[in-house]
């Protein structure tokens, strides 16, 4: 097991390195010179050159690449073109906002989805179950921005139960500290994007778990568990659902990456100041360091998620060989 984790760590480092390299060249392949967004062509050529030297753009490409790697590893993303604050500072608060929305909602979606999917697969064929399959298929097919807009229309504008967006009521909190994240006001604002995101994300694990259950229910060991005279609930959870979870667990890294990237959409709809919204703002303002850093962080979080899911899978399925 320890060897397996070490190997997975090693794989993770290679993936990170590949990611950083691709990103370095990707941003240099973009049309236009990013430096021109800060260095005005109206400046004296001498001043322009001085600024280029300040950004390190006068150095050979290989040296630029090495400096870039060093900076990324130390989480030094430079300064925002727009606000002149350090990018790390800008990202710091934003990443928490994204994680506080996406992670609990993903965990809930997978837990609830797995349990509901297991029950639906086990007690298949009823009218209620058919209706549920339809509802969740629609939820999965619906674009998340559309679901968000519908939810705002219904729960915020018509019913007035939840605020339509933002982290907290503007002006209520001076410092964005732990207390803010624990306040009722924050939770009240969190509720609607959380519900929308969870309902959207729950469909996939639920439908997958259901179909996985349908095939596991026909396995010999499930029939054998019944022959052993185990209580029905134990057969359902310890045998059928436990084994059906394996294919569902493999999708966690993929879906987590998808959800983090998808935070762009849900955060825009709910004006939720997270990484996704920051990325949108960065793109609109041609704020390259911010976009690059947000891009990088989302990718790093996805790689970390994959790593955790790999370990989880190793624990779930004893047949995985660790060497």
């Amino acid at each position: 097991m320890r060897q397996y984790i070490l190997r997975r760590c090693w794989h993770m480092l290679i993936t990170l390195f590949a990611l950083m390299t691709i990103m370095f060249f990707l941003f240099r392949l973009l049309p236009g010179d990013p430096a021109m967004t800060v260095i005005s062509s109206a400046m004296y050529p001498k001043a322009q050159e001085a600024m280029r030297a300040q950004f390190g753009l006068d150095k050979p490409l290989l040296q630029q690449y090495l400096i870039y790697l060093q900076n990324l590893i130390t989480f030094d993303f430079g300064y925002s073109f727009h606000s002149s604050r350090s990018v790390s500072e800008l990202l710091g608060g934003r990443i928490v906002n994204t994680l506080v929305l996406i992670l609990p909602s993903m965990i809930l979606a997978y837990l609830l989805g797995a349990v509901l999917g297991a029950l639906m697969g086990w007690y298949r064929g009823g009218r209620f179950e058919t209706a549920m399959v339809l509802v969740f298929t629609v939820l999965q097919a619906a674009p998340v921005f559309w679901l968000g807009m519908l939810a705002i229309l219904l729960f915020s504008i018509n019913l007035g139960w939840f605020p339509p967006g933002h982290l907290v009521t503007p002006g209520m909190f001076v410092n964005r500290d732990l207390w803010m994240y624990l306040s009722a006001d924050f939770l009240h604002h969190l509720a609607l994007p959380f519900i929308v995101h969870t309902s959207y994300q729950i469909a996939f694990p639920l439908l997958l778990m259901r179909s996985s259950m349908l095939s596991t229910a026909g396995e010999d060991f499930v029939e054998f568990a019944r022959i052993k005279g185990l209580p029905e609930r134990r057969i359902l959870f310890r045998h059928a659902a436990r084994n059906s979870m394996l294919p569902v667990a493999t999708t966690i890294p993929m879906i987590l990456g998808w959800a983090l990237a998808g935070s762009v959409v849900i955060e825009t709809v709910f004006s939720w100041p997270g990484l996704g919204l920051l990325m949108i703002e960065g793109v609109q303002r041609s704020d390259f360091p911010v976009v690059q850093a947000a891009f990088y962080l989302i990718a790093v979080l996805t790689i970390l998620g994959t790593f955790v899911a790999d370990i989880l899978y190793g624990i779930l399925d004893p047949r995985i060989v660790y060497d």
């Binding site: 396995e219 010999d220 060991f221 054998f224 568990a225 310890r238 045998h239 436990r242 084994n243 394996l246 779930l316 399925d317 004893p318 047949r319």
Partner: peptide, 10 residues
Amino acid sequence: SALNSLNPVH
């Protein structure tokens, strides 16, 4: 078939 009757994850 003992292989199929035993649950692989327990």
